[in-house]
């Protein structure tokens, strides 16, 4: 049987995107300091340039799907680690630390709420959840989201409109 030159070609995988994004985020974190806000769009863009140069449109679509999901996992994982650390309850803290820690825990809980709301949305309206993920977490404009998901802009807008209203309803106390 004829053997092709490269018997096992590998595509862009979720793990690869996650690892690369994580690396870039950590580097930026070191560079900018602990409390700076990173530009997620820029991170995703950089990872894109690293991983997806010269690839077919299909892998590019995959990439953004993975990147949005990876960014979401990255952030939610970070929030969970924070809560887990709290549970660990090691070391002594000053009052000032305690206040900061409380604020940080509050953020973490809010993030996990957002994640949970998205999961619930994904269970019933998976496409809506994808639109949110791509828009909020990969920083894509709705026009770009439409392209990535191969949807009409009209459909994307409708999904977005519903998803946003629902999230707002879920997350607003």
């Amino acid at each position: 049987m004829q053997q092709p030159a490269n018997p096992v070609a590998t595509g862009t995988t979720f793990d690869a995107v996650y690892a690369r994004l994580h690396q870039i985020a950590q580097r930026e974190r070191k560079r900018l300091g602990a409390r700076a806000t990173l530009n997620t769009t820029a991170l995703v863009h950089e990872a894109y340039l690293d991983l997806c140069k010269n690839t077919e449109p299909e892998s590019i679509r995959n990439f953004y799907g993975y990147a949005a999901r990876a960014m979401r996992n990255l952030l939610i994982d970070a929030a969970r680690q924070r809560l887990a650390a709290k549970r660990g309850g090691q070391a002594h803290h000053t009052d000032l630390d305690a206040a900061a820690r409380q604020a940080s825990e509050h953020d973490a809980v809010q993030a996990i709420e957002l994640d949970a709301a998205l999961r619930e949305l994904a269970a019933a309206e998976p496409r809506c959840a994808q639109v949110v993920e791509l828009h909020y977490f990969a920083g894509l404009a709705l026009e770009e989201v439409a392209k990535v998901l191969a949807l009409s802009l009209r459909t994307t807008n409708r999904d977005w409109q519903f998803a946003r209203a629902w999230l707002r309803h879920e997350l607003t106390p």
Binding site: A25, Q26, R29, L75, A78, A79, A108, Q110, Y136, F137
Partner: peptide, 16 residues
Amino acid sequence: EISVRIGRLQEGLDVP
């Protein structure tokens, strides 16, 4: 508010 939530999360992306 969502952007802020997402932004705050990044603070957790400390160097492990």
